[in-house]
């Protein structure tokens, strides 16, 4: 019996070893073949991409594999270039049906496909509407990708939705949302819309952080109102943001906020720093 067990273990281990060796060999062989194919496709696609970015209306190749290779490369490149090159690539992708393909991809079963489709769609269309439902996608990575892509596309109208996603139970991290809003680059505090009146202080904190970082002067009334919030973190962030915005008109609101603040607290430090930034320094009490 003991011989049987030892024998079975030996045979199973030997079989598994041989199997693994065969699989490793097969994987290496397929990697070599795939790499060669990619190289070949790349050399075929590169001149066509250069023609497209030069403004030529290159027809989609008749061969399905070549067409897919060109489309995939153009879709990847459209995110990496700027200006006229990007406009030419986006125009070519739109003319060849990639916008519609991206729209279909937003409903794909595979999360990675939905995310890639959202990125591509936002590179080809100014209206972020069709991708906004993905902000509550079941897959966290899809939600994060969509938020980033909205930021990269400069979708200022989507900012309230991005902030909302940052405070939703199934949303995105505050860092992701804040970075996306900064990337979107709103020029006015009005881009945050209803966020300034949100009942959730986390949403207003994010708006205060970003407005301060971007130095949005018209955010001042919202930030001064936030100094009177019941949420200490929001009050602290608002003080920091007012310091960054740098309007001397905020000195009065900051001095009023300083009156009731706990001595030695982070909030007091933030207000004192903000006053110092506004050329109105006060001594710590």
């Amino acid at each position: 019996m003991r011989y049987d067990v030892a024998g079975w273990v030996l045979v199973a281990a030997a079989g598994a070893t041989v199997l693994l060796l065969v699989v490793i060999t097969a994987v290496r062989a397929s990697t070599i073949v795939a790499n060669r194919r990619h190289e070949r496709e790349r050399s075929e696609v590169l001149p066509l991409l250069l023609e497209i970015t030069d403004g030529a209306d290159v027809p989609l190749p008749g061969d399905r594999r070549a067409a897919r290779a060109l489309g995939t490369s153009a879709a990847a490149l459209v995110h990496k270039v700027r200006g006229a090159d990007r406009a030419d690539l986006a125009g070519w992708l739109r003319r060849n049906g990639f916008r519609e393909e991206a729209l279909r991809g937003l409903r794909a079963r595979r999360p990675a496909r939905r995310a890639a489709a959202a990125e591509l769609y936002l590179a080809l269309d100014d209206d972020p509407g069709p991708v906004l439902p993905l902000l509550s996608d079941t897959h966290a990575r899809v939600r994060a990708t969509v938020v980033r892509a909205l930021g990269e596309a400069g979708a200022v109208t989507a900012i309230p939705a991005i902030v909302e996603a940052a405070v939703a139970p199934r949303g995105v991290s505050t860092s992701t949302a804040a970075m996306a809003v900064v990337q979107a680059g709103p020029s006015s505090a009005s881009a945050f819309g209803p966020v300034w009146d949100s009942a959730d202080p986390r949403a207003r904190r994010l708006a205060a952080d970003v407005a301060g970082h971007l130095g949005l002067a018209d955010a001042r009334p919202h930030l001064e109102r936030a100094l009177r919030s019941e949420d200490q973190t929001l009050r602290t962030r608002a003080a920091v943001a007012l310091g960054r915005v740098g309007s001397p008109l905020s000195v009065g609101a900051l001095e009023t906020a300083l009156v009731g603040v706990v001595r030695g607290s982070v909030e007091e430090r933030a207000i004192l720093d903000a006053l110092a930034a506004l050329d109105s320094p006060r001594e710590a009490r």
């Binding site: 995110h79 990496k80 990675a112 890639a116 990708t145 980033r148 990269e152 860092s175 970075m179 900064v182």
Partner: peptide, 19 residues
């Protein structure tokens, strides 16, 4: 690996709020 190379790292590199 199922996730294609997305914009993520380029955006992190370019963003002033990156930690």
């Amino acid at each position: 690996l199922a996730w294609p190379a997305t914009l993520t790292r380029d955006l992190t590199f370019a963003n002033p709020l990156s930690p």
